[in-house]
């Protein structure tokens, strides 16, 4: 297999675009537009179509990484982007009011992709809130009869994002 396609999703502002910038070995493509709603309190631009980057592995395999828009009104893009993907990275912002609810929303929306392939969860901003622990994520996933690695990650860190990708690839090899 010479090409792999992974998808990164998660709430608006969690750091999907940042993660792709950190990971990509080629100049990333971002389709961002100025925010005009309450999201502008958090950030100035938001992804409206997709972000795109490419990681070239040691053996020359190219991994194409697509970042989805976070906001639900762009769910039309979720379906388009999920097509043909081999794995999903869900980023969850631990400092939001109900991160488990956020996780559930993305698990439900990418149900088909998750069932057919595999996924990993990256938890961001653990330094800002410890109300929900990594164990809580595992318990939640278990209650949904799902299993996947849950890893603390900083989207700005290439090392952290590579760790997530490695975990995802290990999951896929097991499956």
């Amino acid at each position: 297999m010479a090409e792999l396609k992974f998808v990164i999703t998660g709430t608006a502002g969690v750091g999907k675009t940042t993660a792709i910038c950190a990971l990509s070995d080629v100049p990333p493509v971002a389709t961002d537009a100025d925010t005009t709603d309450e999201l502008s309190l958090i950030k100035n631009t938001t992804t409206v179509a997709f972000d795109f980057g490419e990681v070239i592995l040691d053996d020359g395999v190219r991994v194409r990484i697509y970042g989805t828009p976070g906001q639900e009104r762009f769910r039309h893009m979720w379906e388009i982007i999920a097509e043909g993907a081999l794995g999903l990275i869900i980023l969850v912002d631990n400092s939001r009011p109900d991160p488990l609810q956020d996780l559930m929303m993305y698990i439900d929306n990418f149900q088909q992709l998750i069932a057919e392939t595999g996924f990993v969860v990256g938890v961001t901003r653990c330094d800002r809130s410890d109300r929900v622990s990594i164990d809580d994520y595992y318990s939640y996933l278990e209650s949904r009869e799902l299993f996947c690695p849950v890893i603390e990650a900083d989207p700005r860190s290439r090392e952290d994002m590579v760790a997530l990708m490695d975990a995802l690839m290990a999951m896929l090899e097991c499956a």
Binding site: A33, A49, R73
Partner: peptide, 21 residues
């Protein structure tokens, strides 16, 4: 128009990026 508004936003952004590419 609510779904159309979101979809045109995606489409315009893509069109603009493809033109640049």
């Amino acid at each position: 128009d609510s779904k159309l508004a979101a979809m045109t936003s995606s489409c315009l952004a893509l069109g603009e990026k493809i033109a640049m590419e």
